[in-house]
């Protein structure tokens, strides 16, 4: 005799129903197994692998080892209607909103401000509440190929009410337990220290959930500060964070996290955030984007013409801590 599962409470937040079998089929039919070069430009990576309406996830944020150059390319290509994961983020969501790219945000944490508040008020952006950990945990479920995972938080709060979590009865011990649905994003953007042309990727230092995100996402774009030879990867396999077959595109992006830092390489450009915050406060984000995104054709051109070598040198000098990253 079977019994219906006991649902104690269910959040009303929107989410895509988990579909681990569908994800397996996608992997079978679309993920590249061959050892072939995936090196492409930012432009080609974004035009090939980011579509309007996609669910986009990224590791860390525009303050530290986030995919800054890929954010700007998404804005440059005027991608629309993206569902963005704001897990442990900073002003990145506001930046993407100011570019008109976003329609939904899964919230863990994001820097709020006038841009976000305006978008909520005019109804152009809808928020769904989770938490940093809950979003990472949903990626973990997505990376394990299971439809959901139980966890020990979210329950009892308004965050739960606005999420897609369910409070149910543990089938083993009959105690209340919260479950969250697996998340398989359409696109993952991951900025890394090093990668080879096949997509074998090295991230040095702490992070949020880059490995699970790469495993759970249909299309994975890695931007790397440095492209290294595969023999270097094979000589020190323990340093590999993500093996090649999860990765769809590799972009060589020195200062790819700009204006954020990349640990062991360069510090963050605080003046750049202040400029963006001022633009948001004064309703001048169009001018900001024109200067930093639309009027330059690429990340490289932005670094050369807008940031300049003196500033790049200062940012390199601001992070002298190589220990643990490069020794």
């Amino acid at each position: 005799m079977t019994q219906a599962p006991t649902i104690v409470a269910a959040g009303k937040g929107e989410f895509r129903p988990p579909d681990p079998d569908g994800y397996r089929e996608y992997v079978r039919d679309h993920k590249e197994r061959r050892l072939i070069s995936k090196l492409v430009s930012e432009h080609d990576a974004v035009s090939r692998f980011v579509s309007d309406g996609d669910y986009v996830a990224y590791d860390l944020n525009i303050a530290a080892r986030g995919p800054g150059s890929l954010f700007r390319e998404i804005i440059r290509q005027r991608k629309k209607d993206l569902w963005v994961m704001a897990k442990f983020t900073w002003t990145d969501v506001s930046l993407l909103i100011s570019g008109g790219c976003v329609s939904k945000v899964d919230v863990g944490w994001m820097e709020s401000g006038p841009i976000l508040n305006r978008a909520i008020k005019d109804g152009s952006v809808k928020l769904i509440e989770w938490s940093n950990g809950a979003l990472a945990y949903r990626l973990l479920a997505g990376s394990l190929g299971v439809p959901y995972l139980p966890m020990r938080y979210l329950g009892g709060t308004d965050t739960f009410e606005q999420s897609g979590a369910i409070l149910t009865e543990d089938p083993y011990n009959h105690k209340p337990i919260c479950i969250v649905p697996a998340l398989n994003p359409d696109v993952a953007l991951i900025h890394a220290h090093q990668a080879d042309m096949y997509g074998n990727t090295r991230i040095f230092g702490a992070g949020v959930s880059p490995v699970e995100m790469a495993m759970a996402s249909k299309k994975v774009i890695v931007s790397a500060e440095e492209i290294i030879d595969t023999i270097e990867i094979r000589k020190q396999p323990q340093r590999t964070t993500i093996p090649y077959y999860f990765v769809d595109a590799v972009v060589h992006a020195p200062f790819g996290s700009y204006p954020g830092s990349t640990q062991g390489l360069y510090g963050a450009d605080l003046e750049q955030w202040l400029a963006f915050a001022a633009a948001g406060a004064m309703g001048k984000t169009d001018e900001y984007l024109e200067n930093w995104v639309y009027s330059v054709g690429s990340h490289q051109e932005m670094l050369e013409k807008r940031v300049g070598e003196a500033k790049l040198k200062a940012l390199r000098d601001a992070d002298t801590l190589k220990e643990g990253y490069y020794d």
Partner: peptide, 21 residues
């Protein structure tokens, strides 16, 4: 450091660098 979030300065001499999960 002024910008602490995720910076190498704030992660200095940890016993492990791992993930949020």
């Amino acid at each position: 450091p002024r910008m602490m979030l995720g910076s190498s300065g704030v992660h200095f001499r940890a016993v492990q660098w791992t993930s949020m999960l």
